[in-house]
Deep mutational scan, measured.
Amino acid sequence: MIINNLKLIREKKKISQSELAALLEVSRQTINGIEKNKYNASLQLALKIAYYLNTPLEDIFQWQ
């Protein structure tokens, strides 16, 4: 199981879903879906999320 901390980290950094989506060149709905565990981010997208949030990938998506 993967624990998804994207919403928590994004909100801590005061970045909206729309802002993050624009940086990543995806839709806001994609970010929303990832945060609600409706969609799994591809490895490429997960790495981009970590880069733009300046946060280690394993802090955003944790295996349990």
Rank of each mutant, 00 (worst) to 15 (best):
residue 2 I to T: 11
residue 2 I to Y: 12
residue 2 I to F: 12
residue 3 I to H: 09
residue 3 I to F: 10
residue 4 N to L: 09
residue 4 N to I: 08
residue 5 N to K: 07
residue 6 L to G: 03
residue 6 L to R: 01
residue 6 L to A: 01
residue 7 K to P: 03
residue 7 K to Y: 05
residue 8 L to Q: 15
residue 8 L to G: 10
residue 8 L to Y: 12
residue 8 L to A: 15
residue 9 I to N: 02
residue 9 I to Y: 10
residue 9 I to L: 08
residue 10 R to C: 09
residue 10 R to P: 02
residue 11 E to R: 10
residue 11 E to T: 10
residue 12 K to E: 13
residue 12 K to L: 12
residue 12 K to I: 09
residue 12 K to T: 11
residue 13 K to P: 01
residue 13 K to A: 12
residue 14 K to P: 02
residue 14 K to D: 09
residue 14 K to Q: 12
residue 15 I to P: 01
residue 15 I to N: 01
residue 15 I to D: 00
residue 15 I to R: 02
residue 15 I to H: 03
residue 15 I to S: 00
residue 16 S to M: 06
residue 16 S to E: 04
residue 16 S to K: 09
residue 17 Q to V: 14
residue 18 S to C: 14
residue 18 S to E: 14
residue 18 S to W: 10
residue 18 S to M: 12
residue 18 S to D: 13
residue 19 E to W: 04
residue 19 E to Y: 08
residue 19 E to C: 09
residue 19 E to M: 09
residue 20 L to S: 00
residue 20 L to N: 00
residue 20 L to C: 05
residue 20 L to R: 00
residue 20 L to F: 06
residue 20 L to P: 00
residue 21 A to D: 00
residue 21 A to C: 05
residue 21 A to G: 06
residue 22 A to N: 11
residue 22 A to I: 11
residue 22 A to L: 12
residue 22 A to M: 12
residue 23 L to K: 12
residue 24 L to V: 15
residue 24 L to M: 07
residue 24 L to T: 13
residue 24 L to Y: 01
residue 24 L to E: 00
residue 25 E to C: 15
residue 25 E to Q: 15
residue 25 E to Y: 08
residue 25 E to T: 08
residue 26 V to N: 01
residue 26 V to M: 04
residue 26 V to G: 01
residue 26 V to C: 10
residue 26 V to I: 10
residue 26 V to F: 01
residue 26 V to H: 03
residue 26 V to P: 01
residue 26 V to L: 04
residue 27 S to K: 08
residue 27 S to R: 08
residue 27 S to F: 02
residue 28 R to Y: 09
residue 28 R to T: 15
residue 29 Q to T: 12
residue 29 Q to C: 14
residue 29 Q to I: 09
residue 29 Q to L: 09
residue 29 Q to G: 12
residue 30 T to L: 15
residue 30 T to N: 04
residue 30 T to Q: 09
residue 31 I to P: 00
residue 31 I to M: 05
residue 32 N to D: 15
residue 32 N to I: 15
residue 32 N to R: 15
residue 32 N to P: 01
residue 33 G to R: 14
residue 33 G to E: 15
residue 33 G to H: 12
residue 33 G to C: 15
residue 34 I to R: 02
residue 34 I to Q: 00
residue 34 I to V: 05
residue 34 I to S: 01
residue 34 I to E: 01
residue 34 I to K: 00
residue 35 E to V: 02
residue 35 E to R: 01
residue 36 K to S: 15
residue 36 K to V: 10
residue 37 N to D: 07
residue 38 K to A: 11
residue 39 Y to V: 15
residue 39 Y to G: 06
residue 39 Y to K: 12
residue 40 N to S: 14
residue 40 N to L: 11
residue 40 N to A: 13
residue 40 N to F: 11
residue 40 N to I: 14
residue 40 N to H: 13
residue 40 N to K: 14
residue 40 N to D: 09
residue 41 A to M: 14
residue 41 A to K: 01
residue 41 A to Y: 05
residue 42 S to D: 10
residue 42 S to Q: 05
residue 42 S to H: 07
residue 42 S to N: 09
residue 44 Q to M: 09
residue 44 Q to R: 11
residue 44 Q to H: 13
residue 44 Q to C: 14
residue 45 L to I: 08
residue 46 A to P: 00
residue 46 A to F: 05
residue 46 A to K: 11
residue 47 L to T: 13
residue 47 L to E: 14
residue 47 L to M: 12
residue 47 L to N: 12
residue 48 K to V: 03
residue 48 K to P: 00
residue 48 K to F: 02
residue 48 K to R: 11
residue 48 K to E: 05
residue 50 A to N: 02
residue 50 A to H: 02
residue 50 A to K: 03
residue 51 Y to P: 00
residue 51 Y to D: 08
residue 51 Y to M: 10
residue 51 Y to E: 10
residue 51 Y to L: 09
residue 51 Y to I: 09
residue 52 Y to G: 03
residue 52 Y to R: 05
residue 52 Y to C: 13
residue 52 Y to I: 15
residue 53 L to C: 03
residue 53 L to A: 01
residue 53 L to K: 02
residue 53 L to V: 03
residue 53 L to I: 05
residue 54 N to A: 11
residue 54 N to Q: 14
residue 55 T to N: 03
residue 55 T to A: 07
residue 55 T to M: 06
residue 55 T to F: 03
residue 55 T to I: 05
residue 56 P to E: 07
residue 56 P to K: 08
residue 56 P to W: 06
residue 56 P to Q: 05
residue 57 L to N: 03
residue 57 L to G: 07
residue 58 E to L: 09
residue 58 E to Q: 12
residue 59 D to P: 03
residue 60 I to H: 01
residue 60 I to F: 03
residue 60 I to Y: 01
residue 60 I to Q: 01
residue 61 F to S: 01
residue 61 F to I: 03
residue 62 Q to H: 09
residue 62 Q to R: 10
residue 63 W to M: 07
residue 63 W to L: 08
residue 63 W to R: 06
residue 63 W to K: 07
residue 63 W to V: 07
residue 64 Q to L: 05
